[in-house]
Design a protein around this nucleic acid. Sequence first.
DNA 1: CATGAATGAGTATTCATTCAT
DNA 2: TATGAATGAATACTCATTCAT
Lengths: 224, 224, 224, 224
Amino acid sequence: MPVKSKKRPGRPKDKALIARRCEEILDAAAQIFAAQGYRNTDVQLVADRLNIGKGTVYRYFPSKRNLFLAAVDRGMRRLRTQIETCTANIADPLERIVRAISAYLTFFDTHPEFVELIIQERAEFKDRAKPTYFEHRDANVGPWQELFRELMRAGRVREMPVERITDVLGNLLYGTMFTNYFAGRQKPFEVQAQDILDIVFYGILSEQERKGCPPAVDEGTPCD
Amino acid sequence: MPVKSKKRPGRPKDKALIARRCEEILDAAAQIFAAQGYRNTDVQLVADRLNIGKGTVYRYFPSKRNLFLAAVDRGMRRLRTQIETCTANIADPLERIVRAISAYLTFFDTHPEFVELIIQERAEFKDRAKPTYFEHRDANVGPWQELFRELMRAGRVREMPVERITDVLGNLLYGTMFTNYFAGRQKPFEVQAQDILDIVFYGILSEQERKGCPPAVDEGTPCD
Amino acid sequence: MPVKSKKRPGRPKDKALIARRCEEILDAAAQIFAAQGYRNTDVQLVADRLNIGKGTVYRYFPSKRNLFLAAVDRGMRRLRTQIETCTANIADPLERIVRAISAYLTFFDTHPEFVELIIQERAEFKDRAKPTYFEHRDANVGPWQELFRELMRAGRVREMPVERITDVLGNLLYGTMFTNYFAGRQKPFEVQAQDILDIVFYGILSEQERKGCPPAVDEGTPCD
Amino acid sequence: MPVKSKKRPGRPKDKALIARRCEEILDAAAQIFAAQGYRNTDVQLVADRLNIGKGTVYRYFPSKRNLFLAAVDRGMRRLRTQIETCTANIADPLERIVRAISAYLTFFDTHPEFVELIIQERAEFKDRAKPTYFEHRDANVGPWQELFRELMRAGRVREMPVERITDVLGNLLYGTMFTNYFAGRQKPFEVQAQDILDIVFYGILSEQERKGCPPAVDEGTPCD
DNA sequence: CATGAATGAGTATTCATTCAT
DNA sequence: TATGAATGAATACTCATTCAT
């Protein structure tokens, strides 16, 4: 009785296998795109690294561009996971900030390929409204702003617009990440984190100078 | 004595003309490289913009790569000039810093093409030991460090390694410049400069919190 | 005696099933090859149309080329069957001719995909000694020549080499089929058949002109 | 005095040279497209034949498709020229027809590559509203219809719609051209022209048969 | 000197075919 | 037996650079 009970004939699809393959390909792609640059990376190189055929890569990602952007996005999601893991279960808000900054710098120190991918993305895909990095940054900034508001309410942080803090801190980390990668990190990143925190928390002015008036910039711009 | 005292016989090489041509080409190149990206910029496009032949561009710059790097370098020299102009004749050291930061942000706001060129350079010329931007940064940081040392001696800035300040400030400006360009500047750059200075000068902690111990990061990193 | 007398043990090869599958595949293939062209037709498309796997198509036809040629051949056999059906039981020879011409035009009007396949075959398989169409034409021309010989013996058709008639008539139909397909048929094909017959049977010259000498072409060709 | 009198600096354009190059390229392209088929023809092959670089071909024709269509169009223009040359200064209208038919067959006999190009065009560019051949046919048919009208007025050709004649004759020539090319011409084309004219001018029916009624096709179509 | 015609190395993507399941 | 995952050969077009005019 040729009952086609529940299984279609032919080779069945293996979802898990497919997902694993995707991960492997994205891993290899991230490394090679970072090492060679987007334009200098032949998809063949990615396939060779994995000992698979070029056509196979195209089975999983419809184009080189698509493969690249998927690799970047995966990096950003990993960064977020890393930071969340490192700050979970930390009660003290200031301590959370400390941990997050350290996790951020550690992540890019451990995975320098993602710094490169961020650059490559900007260089090649100028048409994208907003680079992947900033999409993720904007999507994740909310909770941190809430945390700073709390700290102000608790009187532990000076009153100021929270955006001032998150912007300055965000840009500082962003710039530090790039500088570390491009110019070479000069000191252990724990020290680097400390340096950042020392200045961001305490400022550079001496006690005595703090008593004077705040600096002003708005007296006209004498040069252009 | 820059007097061109006596003309040599024969057709004189018109150095000034040549220099002017170079400038024109670099101007056009910077704009087009920035607008299209390095790889998408045909040298023909640069020639067309100037209504000259493609071969003529090659008379002034031996290769596309060379043309591009010259354009970046020119941008960095302009940045330096801009900052020097804006800080000249300013006696007060803190005021000099304020002016310099404002000049830096203003420059890249006025010439966004140079931000793009910095990115493009990193993306395409991964072989270069140090990107042009950081070459200039390193070359120019000395006087600023001296200035901060002075401020410490005068008791106006807390005692700390000057590198801490210049690194943090440098990275912060670098990150801000990129963010402004990529994600779009959200506020007038005078306000932005103020925000930066407020935090860098005074820190974010409240008076009360400043009395507590400094934050520490070195207790091991529980995640990785 | 086509009685399948005693069944062999084991699973019988279901010849009929296999043949049916072949027909289905050829049907789909003919349509898609005609619609997309040979080179633009992915074998996957044929499989998709039938909701079967690509490998299954290859179980029935060893290659794309083979599949295509089988589809063309099937079309030609159908054409022959059509014409035979339409001319069967027609006693009058002239009437048989009329019917055959009408059937020919009707066939390609009803199955324009076969016109396309004839073109595609010529375009892609230039190595074949003789295209499928002409193989069939040569194989089928014999009875028609016999028929014209009969008509001459009966004094109903002028004496002339029968090849002259079959060549001219064959080429005229061939050209008409293509023109109808490419340029769009301008009139009902019954009218078209009438037009053809009017000229082929009666010629275009007036009674008066027919008395003159036949036209000559052999006086040298003054141009080349 | 550096008067730029009338000549721009740099290498001047040579219009004649450009036109000659185009012709050379089209010649080579027509032959190779015909010999290999459109899809199997690498533009490199055309370049090799001429001992020029592939890029040079692309300087003159923006794409392979464009090059191909230009080659077909050139063939059709040549055909027209050939026919016009052969029929010029021929006073007798019937003789003009004889000459034109002969010129048509001679042209494709001498330039079989254009038959192939016509096929290739249809096979590859199914999107074109009307193939190049039919565009030219339609553009040139007018004067011939006028000629047939004249012949009718003069009583030398039977009264009938001129389209009937030009359609039948056009399709007959079209089909003959293809058949000659595909199946191989079996007899000298002068004889072929004579055969065609004998039937088209005089019809195939005997004098006796011509007295009977014309054949009819419209009695219903007993088969489908 | 200035030009632009000529060149050919370099590259993303497709798809016929195979074969493990 | 039916399937579809895997493969890699094949291919049109671009553009940096050169050099004859």
